[in-house]
Simulated assay, not measured.
Amino acid sequence: MKVSFVSEQTGSGGLNEYIKHHLGHNTSEVFGQSFHVDTWAVSLVLGLVFLLWFGLAARKATAGVPTKGQAFVEMILEFIDGQVKDTFHGDRRSVTPLALTIFMWVVFMNTMDLIPLDLPGTLISATAGAEVAHHTYFRMVPTADLNTTFALSVSVFFILIGHALSAKGAMGFGKELLTAPFHAHGPMKFALVPVNLVMNIIEWLVKPVSLAMRLFGNMYGGELVFMLIAGLLGSWITFVPGVLANTAWAIFHILIILLQAFIFMILTVVYIAGARESH
Rank of each mutant, 00 (worst) to 15 (best):
I76D: 04
I76Y: 14
I76L: 15
I76T: 13
L77Y: 09
E78A: 15
F79P: 02
I80N: 00
D81Q: 14
Q83T: 10
Q83H: 11
Q83W: 12
Q83F: 11
V84W: 01
V84H: 02
D86P: 07
D86F: 09
F88K: 05
F88H: 14
H89T: 11
H89Q: 11
G90L: 06
G90H: 08
D91S: 09
S94Y: 14
S94H: 12
V95R: 00
T96P: 08
P97I: 08
L98H: 06
L98K: 07
L98Q: 10
L98E: 06
L100Q: 10
T101C: 10
M104S: 12
M104G: 10
W105C: 07
V106C: 08
V106S: 06
V107Y: 00
V107C: 15
F108H: 03
N110C: 13
T111Q: 11
T111F: 13
T111V: 10
M112K: 04
M112S: 09
M112L: 12
D113W: 01
L114T: 03
L114P: 00
I115V: 15
P116S: 06
P116Q: 03
L117C: 06
L117V: 14
L117G: 07
L117T: 15
D118Q: 07
L119G: 01
L119D: 01
T122D: 14
L123K: 07
I124K: 04
A126W: 09
A126E: 10
A128N: 14
G129Q: 05
A130K: 11
E131H: 08
E131G: 06
V132T: 15
V132S: 10
A133G: 07
A133K: 00
A133I: 04
H134D: 15
T136P: 07
T136I: 09
T136Y: 10
R139S: 11
R139E: 12
R139Y: 04
V141T: 12
V141S: 01
P142C: 05
P142V: 02
P142N: 05
P142L: 02
P142K: 01
T143G: 05
T143K: 01
T143C: 09
A144H: 00
D145C: 09
L146M: 13
L146D: 03
T148Y: 02
T148A: 09
T149D: 04
F150Y: 15
